[in-house]
Design a binder for these strands. Structure first.
Lengths: 334, 334
DNA sequence: CTGTTAGCGCCTTCAC
DNA sequence: GTGAAGGCGCTAACAG
């Protein structure tokens, strides 16, 4: 492998017998280039294997095709789903996502935002509505469109795309109450980091309170959600509270683990103990009895956000909230 | 939100009463700047919320901190796992992954490679060892380190990090034969696109042939792998072949679906029918009976590759293959 | 339809 | 320890 010896516009121009700007116009599909010239230039480009230098192009035109994407995690399928949606909407327009992962840490988010903004992105996509004040200042100053994903329970800088996790919690309580369940348990994961799970939890408690109920038993891991955590924690919860008739999980990963505990312990789902999740993951729906849960629209959130940031911002400059909603999946476990 | 009004080095320099180059030196931690000057400059930088323009910096110095990452998919947790590993190794060094997704299409890969190379990345990470000839030419010409992931069954351009899927297939056959299974079935997904699954399949057949056996029944979907596909296909396979004693799945997603079919149909795992997967996903290990499978090291593959591409290439320029291997997980289903 | 000129913001090189 | 000049590769704006 030789050292980097990439060609420049000037090289192509010389070989094609035209000026740099003509080659530039051909490559950017600008009008006003004779068909014959265009063909000749394109032939030379292909022959030389010329790849334009977008770094230079961006500097000259002050507009890149990069979109900064800051996500809290990639461990759970939720954020890859969002990223797929983003990618699906960006790719046809030739935009490239540049990805950073914060591990749910706002300080890391701040550094990432600075780093991504230094690439003069066309837009920024973040997760959640809470950031450090310096992050917010940098974002405002950047003068590009900003989408904040997943959550719509506060006011965004520019665009929020997601659902209300608080209402989702309330609706979970109402739905399960409506189906006759009265003795509620809860199995959760690390709420101090997953603020959306915390919102659902609060909504759930509020919904129960409105029905004159409360959680009879609850347990939460300090760790991120996982199937194995759900399985273990349900076992522990049931050991302490034998009379629950329904258990709400912080998400489907946890709930599927709960289902596995029931399989292993010979507990009949719904008849003996009802389970309810959150997210509507495939794995839950593929269970022998499909999981009762609430479907979030993760791919849609990513795709919608990416579509919206590509549109120029109006002069009014008021924050926009796009609610992608959620559906209750009846399933067969609650 | 106002228009983009980011400051430049010159703005900072003026306010700090020094020249641009001094500010530049401070920000890049170059020596030969007086401590007092450094402090004053840094104070001004923070006060103004100045964010350097890396586009300009890259153009001037011809070296970026971007790493192009081309993956076939994000739908399956496998590639997010790889991406996590890449991110984990890149982040401490200040490198940023720029991600493209090919959807297993070499033409899309070619376009993505061109697009990513146009950002003058410090290195490129791809998946698999097969690319179009133009892709290969562009990559060679780029003069940067190139890692090809997942597979080591052919010669890479520069670095290959992964495992031999062919040997994995052979070892699966040997292992199961060693445990006394003789009547083999296979449940797969779209092999025309997932070439590594195809390699494992071929290895499996070869391994069986060496033991004087063959697949008594097999079935494959034209679709990507999924839990629900695994569940349905196992049902179909068993309907046609009642006497199998073990079924090998193209991966864990499919195998977990198979386990769900068995739960629903009342088939006792291992006693009546053994199941074997591939990947060693958490979900399989969280099953009431942990799935017998072969663990690939996806995070390790990503992390190793990212570490290797950050090291300068030696003068000898010979391709390097790093085998991250795999482990057999005995589990309780085979 | 094509070309010329003048930067984009920063960093390298050389001078002081 | 600090600064001035020039250029990275490309494109906007203006000529012709």
């Amino acid at each position: 492998m030789t050292a980097r010896i990439s060609y420049t516009l000037a090289d192509v121009a010389t070989r094609a017998g035209v000026s740099e700007i003509t080659v530039s116009r051909v490559l950017r599909n600008k009008a006003s280039v004779a068909e014959k010239t265009r063909e000749r230039v394109l032939a030379v480009v292909r022959e030389m294997g010329y790849v334009p230098n977008r770094v230079a192009g961006t500097l000259a035109s002050s507009g890149s095709n990069l979109v900064g994407v800051v996500l809290p995690s990639l461990s759970n399928i939720v954020f890859p789903d969002v990223l797929r949606g983003i990618h699906a909407a960006l790719a046809p327009s030739g935009y490239q996502p540049v990805v950073g992962v914060t591990d749910y840490d706002q300080e890391i988010e701040e550094q990432l935002v600075a780093s991504l903004l230094s690439w003069q992105p066309a837009a920024m996509i973040l997760s959640g509505l809470h950031h450090t004040s310096y992050t917010v200042e940098m974002l405002r100053r950047a003068g590009v469109r900003i989408a904040e994903l997943m959550d719509i329970d506060a006011t965004p800088l520019d665009i929020a795309v997601g659902m209300s996790h608080h209402r989702a919690g309330i609706d979970t309580a109402r739905y399960l109450h409506g189906r006759g369940y009265r003795r509620f348990g809860y199995v959760g994961h690390d709420r101090s980091r997953d603020l959306r799970a915390a919102r659902r939890y609060e909504g759930l408690r509020q919904g129960l309170a409105e029905a004159g109920l409360s959680l009879e038993g609850e347990i939460a891991a300090a760790a991120p959600s996982s199937t194995s955590a759900g399985r273990e924690l349900l076992g522990q919860l049931l050991a302490a509270h034998r009379d629950l008739d329904v258990v709400v999980f912080s998400n489907d990963d946890m709930a599927v683990g709960g289902a596995f505990h029931c399989f292993a312990a010979g507990i009949r789902l719904r008849d003996e103990l009802a389970l309810f999740g959150f997210n509507g993951l495939d794995i839950g729906q593929a269970l022998p009895q499909p999981l009762s849960t609430l479907r979030s629209h993760r791919f849609l959130i990513g795709r919608t956000a990416a579509e919206m940031i590509l549109e120029p911002r109006g002069a009014d400059a008021r924050p926009v909230i796009r609610d992608t909603g959620y559906d209750i999946i009846e399933g067969e476990t609650a």
